[in-house]
Simulated assay, not measured.
Amino acid sequence: MARAPHPPADGFDPAFVADVLDDALGHRGPGHGVRVYAIAGLQGSGKSTLAAQLAALARARGLRCASLSIDDFYLGRGQRRRLARRVHPLLATRGPPGTHDVALACDTLDALCAGRSARLPRFDKLADTRLPPSRWRDSGRVDLVLFEGWLLKTPPQDATALAAPINALERDEDADGRWRRWCNRALADAYPPLWSRLDRLLFLQPPGFEVVPQWRWQQECRLQASRPHHRGMTRPQLERFVQFYERVSRQALRTLPGLAERTVPLDARRRPLPA
């Protein structure tokens, strides 16, 4: 009997990880020797777990590897609060388009792809702010860059699709649509330069958005267990938090299977399904 793939909490099956790494190494980025292999997937889908396994296997093969997440480039809490005062109160919450330092992400990837060392930003999710630069790790020169994130290469929606709210958060706290229109414009205008730096995209495709709250709660429980002295989100807080991501997540589900170079469907336990 074939061995079932491991769920992401315990790591993906080693054969699957090796196959993905071969995919990453088999496609050289245009104009430079350093590949940027991107992993997209909705919240809790196992992106970070897969990236960590890929990085470990790459190093075991003698490659120098840097692993980054778009989450590392969130604007700090103070920056988001200023944005919330200037544009819309919902922008105080990290995650949606417009709450990332896209220029810093581009600069970091450019340095790595040019064969230079770079300082790798890190975001502390429990403290809800980016770590100070003095705590960023120096990458050294690398052969491969892994870049994971929930909204990678997701295109903006048509303006007509923004008219009706899709959840209670939008209905009650963005009744006029100002927040979602601003995020959609950011997705259209600010992010394409970053997407252009991603050489190849793997999409971990969940069975639907409905699994995301449970997956994200499992992720939150593991995060809190690793740092028991820091207070994380309660379940009701997390249910609200996931609604900030719902619109773009559903757009990713609709569009990324046609945009990603490789799509891997997952079952409800986050196990890759047979091709």
Rank of each mutant, 00 (worst) to 15 (best):
residue 225 A to V: 01
residue 74 Y to V: 08
residue 200 R to H: 12
residue 179 W to F: 13
residue 132 P to Q: 08
residue 101 D to N: 13
residue 34 V to Q: 04
residue 41 G to P: 03
residue 117 S to W: 04
residue 257 P to I: 13
residue 239 E to K: 08
residue 55 A to D: 10
residue 87 V to G: 02
residue 20 V to F: 01
residue 27 H to R: 15
residue 202 L to A: 07
residue 125 K to Q: 08
residue 218 Q to I: 04
residue 199 D to E: 09
residue 210 E to F: 09
residue 87 V to A: 12
residue 215 W to M: 11
residue 25 L to A: 01
residue 39 I to L: 13
residue 154 T to K: 02
residue 35 R to A: 14
residue 219 Q to A: 07
residue 220 E to D: 11
residue 275 A to H: 14
residue 20 V to A: 08
residue 200 R to N: 01
residue 65 C to K: 04
residue 190 A to G: 03
residue 132 P to H: 08
residue 157 Q to D: 13
residue 30 P to C: 08
residue 236 P to I: 15
residue 136 W to L: 12
residue 140 G to A: 04
residue 152 L to T: 05
residue 214 Q to D: 15
residue 270 R to K: 12
residue 134 S to C: 13
residue 1 M to V: 08
residue 28 R to D: 07
residue 65 C to H: 04
residue 225 A to N: 11
residue 124 D to N: 13
residue 230 H to I: 08
residue 23 D to V: 10
residue 182 W to L: 00
residue 108 T to C: 14
residue 176 D to K: 03
residue 11 G to H: 09
residue 68 L to N: 11
residue 28 R to C: 10
residue 28 R to P: 01
residue 171 R to P: 00
residue 41 G to D: 11
residue 44 G to K: 09
residue 246 E to Y: 02
residue 159 A to K: 10
residue 107 D to F: 04
residue 230 H to T: 13
residue 145 V to N: 02
residue 25 L to F: 01
residue 196 S to E: 15
residue 67 S to D: 12
residue 109 L to V: 14
residue 258 G to N: 14
residue 62 G to V: 11
residue 250 R to N: 12
residue 10 D to T: 08
residue 125 K to A: 08
residue 157 Q to L: 15
residue 54 L to S: 08
residue 252 A to S: 15
residue 104 L to N: 06
residue 141 R to M: 05
residue 123 F to C: 05
residue 166 I to W: 00
residue 86 R to W: 02
residue 75 L to P: 00
residue 232 G to M: 10
residue 44 G to T: 09
residue 256 L to A: 02
residue 191 Y to F: 14
residue 92 A to W: 01
residue 205 Q to R: 14
residue 43 Q to K: 03
residue 117 S to E: 14
residue 27 H to C: 12
residue 2 A to Y: 07
residue 177 G to K: 03
residue 28 R to A: 13
residue 224 Q to R: 14
residue 89 P to M: 06
residue 55 A to L: 06
residue 178 R to E: 11
residue 97 P to R: 00
residue 46 G to I: 06
residue 64 R to Y: 08
residue 84 A to P: 07
residue 237 Q to K: 07
residue 96 P to C: 11
residue 10 D to N: 11
residue 121 P to C: 07
residue 191 Y to L: 09
residue 261 E to S: 06
residue 236 P to R: 15
residue 267 D to K: 09
residue 244 F to Q: 00
residue 81 R to D: 12
residue 81 R to V: 07
residue 5 P to Y: 01
residue 58 A to W: 00
residue 258 G to A: 15
residue 226 S to K: 12
residue 58 A to H: 02
residue 58 A to S: 11
